[in-house]
Design a protein around this nucleic acid. Sequence first.
DNA 1: TACCGCATACAAAACGTTTTGGAAGGAGCG
DNA 2: CGCTCCTTCCAAAACGTTTTGTATGCGGTA
Lengths: 342, 342
Amino acid sequence: MGKVGIRDVAKAAEVSVTTVSHALSEANQHRVSPETREHVREVATTLGYAPNRLASGLRNQRSYLLGLVSDEIASTPFAGEMILGAQDAAYERGWLLMLVDSGRNWDLEQKQLAALLQHQVDGVVVARMYHQEARVPEGAGRVPTVLLDAFDPEGSFSSVVPDEEAAARTAVRELLAAGHTRIGFINNADDIPAAAGRLAGYREALSEAGIAYDAGLVTREAPAVSGGRSGAQRLLGMADRPTAVFCFHDRQAFGLYEVAAQLGLTIPDDLSVVSIDNFEIIADGLWPGLTSVALPHYGMGRWAVTRLLDEIEGVAPDGETVQMRFDCPIVRRGSVAPPRAG
Amino acid sequence: MGKVGIRDVAKAAEVSVTTVSHALSEANQHRVSPETREHVREVATTLGYAPNRLASGLRNQRSYLLGLVSDEIASTPFAGEMILGAQDAAYERGWLLMLVDSGRNWDLEQKQLAALLQHQVDGVVVARMYHQEARVPEGAGRVPTVLLDAFDPEGSFSSVVPDEEAAARTAVRELLAAGHTRIGFINNADDIPAAAGRLAGYREALSEAGIAYDAGLVTREAPAVSGGRSGAQRLLGMADRPTAVFCFHDRQAFGLYEVAAQLGLTIPDDLSVVSIDNFEIIADGLWPGLTSVALPHYGMGRWAVTRLLDEIEGVAPDGETVQMRFDCPIVRRGSVAPPRAG
DNA sequence: TACCGCATACAAAACGTTTTGGAAGGAGCG
DNA sequence: CGCTCCTTCCAAAACGTTTTGTATGCGGTA
């Protein structure tokens, strides 16, 4: 069965192609009688007709294609969640997603965007693998564009990022609520918004609780398991060691668990731990389970595309942009307990 | 600057659209003089002209679009690697990838495939998140189709999967080479090709070394950290416990590490460990690092699209299919040592 | 000189839709 | 009865390309 086109339907239904188009479209239904409309629809489904979107896209100047350009899809396991959220939102509204990954190659990203544009995408999501200021590739902006896990300092594009400060506040409050007062913080040594934001959140939560900030309890380490290890060695080696530690992310907490075990410290009785990411394999895999604040990747991906489609379809007022911060819910497992008495 | 079309170039270069098309195309160059050809090309790049692929796709019956339908993109962190390999291979040859994820909903997958087909994709990759027999959605096969991390028992489609037996042999040989003779195996309890294949590989490697198969050393557990824990408890609790354990995957090895630590067993001195997946965050995060056989997701994704394009472009003989098995290289870290003397 | 072939350029058709502008016919009204 | 107004349908143009068929002019050959 070769491809069936609108002409085939017209022939089979013994009407003109115009009538077929009107019968099948939602818009101009009034131009065809209910009977023929029904008849045409039956014939169409019988033949298995589905309009060629290349042709309709050409005619309507609307491809129902969205581009998703990202710096690194593969490097983090969260990518899947972001992409999935984006894809779901797109599909639900009748769009399809085209994906390119530049592997942090800037020139390549430009070319990939050009390729997307050649395919007449109706809009573009520019995604970054961790919260950062976006270098938006040239040519974006020729179609509606939304930033995902990135922001534009000039505010020319809508964007969505996690609320780092709130996430850190949530994490630290969890420890405060359990009664801890000496709370260490293993931060990320990289100079990125997440590091600054989480430090601010850490300080705010402490200050809310009337606890003075002690720079000696904060250490900046590589964002990896090894960084967690060295941070833990420093913090847990102190004479007056903290009774709880807040980690920049789950990988660092992983390293912290290892060092704690080596030192004979039991989690959570001797040491409470909270971190950010809620990366299942680690947080669920560690024993006891790691209490962690989730970065809402799925939700952000979904929001980005939803916003993009609103801009494309003119639902959103023209030219207006929205800078969205997403809340980060905490997922409690077994790594927090009150400090040892005394 | 509104979109610039071929007419604009023609006008600016003071030639006909035909000439522009010929000048820019590789095919019919002989129909235009070298001078005009050069002139047209200059004007085109000056104006920033790039042909509308919707239009050319309509005319040429070739969209330069590929569909990638998958059951679960987000559930495993490897997805990124497969998708990236596929995307790279596609982009390098001038194609773009459209992505859909069904979340294991078969009806949805059918509909998504239909949507892809409406967009006139030139071919489809059907990807599965772990090696399995594929339920190919209806409608695939109307365009060239390749299976990724899945196989078709009838052989009507080309496919690529990891060589499970070889992977297990490689892993177990690593332990044998270190001198181990009592080697436990924590297998996956699910009845899937990977479990059967890896068991076969385990037995082959033992038999090569002249070691009798001991069913008591093999346990089938849930494919998760918790499964690794319970398997470890069983294996390491034995009177004559194994000196080395081969795990189905890194997550199980993660659980094994935890139990070994609780029992006071040092890795690798008291216990050697090898597994499969080479999932960086775990294998690199564990201490000591976990020696693991890598599943070549990137390479398989790349192969699938390369093969698909060969079929589309007629490079591959018509109707012929290829069932590909990919080799799995071992990545050595610190979890293997000779057994304790005595 | 008359003819042919070649190099170069262009007009027009086609790809599969959607939509505009009528046309044909019947009903309602004065 | 004649006019207008609906209803229902259709022909044709348009979207931006690519490609086929053809026209023009020129040099070379008989």
